[in-house]
Amino acid sequence: MPTTTDQAIGADLIREVAFELNRRAAIHIPDDVRENIRGMAERETEKLSKFVLLEIVNNYEVADEDNVPMCADTGLPRFYAKVGNEARLEGGFVALERSIREATARATAEIPLRPNRVHPISRKDHNNNVGIHAPNVDYSWEPNAEWVELTAFHKGGLFGGDYRMLFPGDGVDGIRRFYLDVISEFFKRGLSCQPAIVGIGIGGTKDTCVRLAKEAACLRVVGDRNPDPEIAALEEELVGLGQRTSLSAMGFKGQGAVMDAHIEVAYTHTGGMPVSIHHQCFALRRATARIHADGRVEYRENPEWFTDYYRRETVS
């Protein structure tokens, strides 16, 4: 078990890593997504859907070859920070957040990213994706660790998310119906930019289930299953249900466009079952790095955000 170290993780290092994560996220598609969509393209028999899926796979290669963002809507850059309980940060969390902001502004100019972040009313644009509550930084904690993990995510999408207050009487059928409803809303005409990973947050409070749905869609890789066998079985059922809608890429007829369904739960009010559903598009921009106290940096594609500790159920 690591002990508390006096070595602090430098703010300059965090800034460099945050920039590199923005670059990797914007340009390079993670293997899990590319391979899943490549498989869909190979299996698809409808010509329009197959054409679209093949162009999507080709675009991933063009982005790598030309070293440019895979999608011009480079989304809203945001960061997930998992902080080891024993980690020390030079300058503390204020410095961490400043490093992330500096890296995001630099990435916007140099990659370049589209400066999407504007004031919601005046529409003022700083042209650097930085502003009030922008970029978002969400935190989780990990015991017995002295590293910091950062995940950059460029979150696109005006569409593909919804929330519904269901009740215990609505039951799992209520979740199934809501799942189909969101596909009906946003897979038609391809508004979700599917193939999509569908994240489903069940329970908690309204804000918690919306957060969990987004994290489930964005921070779990294709093929990952919830450790609870009942939830895992529902995930697999929902993948099949999504494919049977016949709504494929762009909403054309085909073999479906659900890359995976990921469910996360939170304990909720005894009278209710709030549910949120989130579609993450095929231009899935994410990259993760673990930054150690001694300055080592390990980059990887799987955020491993949902740890046993993060999903803990008991007091300790």
Binding site: L166, L180, K188, T245, S246
Partner: peptide, 25 residues
């Protein structure tokens, strides 16, 4: 093109809704 596509996908989609009630609220 989308009007053509929607006709094709709606038929399959509606079958999946069978037995799933509207939400309480």
């Amino acid at each position: 093109l989308y009007q053509m596509a929607l006709k094709e996908t709606n038929a399959e989609l509606m079958q999946l809704y069978e037995g799933l009630p509207l939400p309480t609220l």
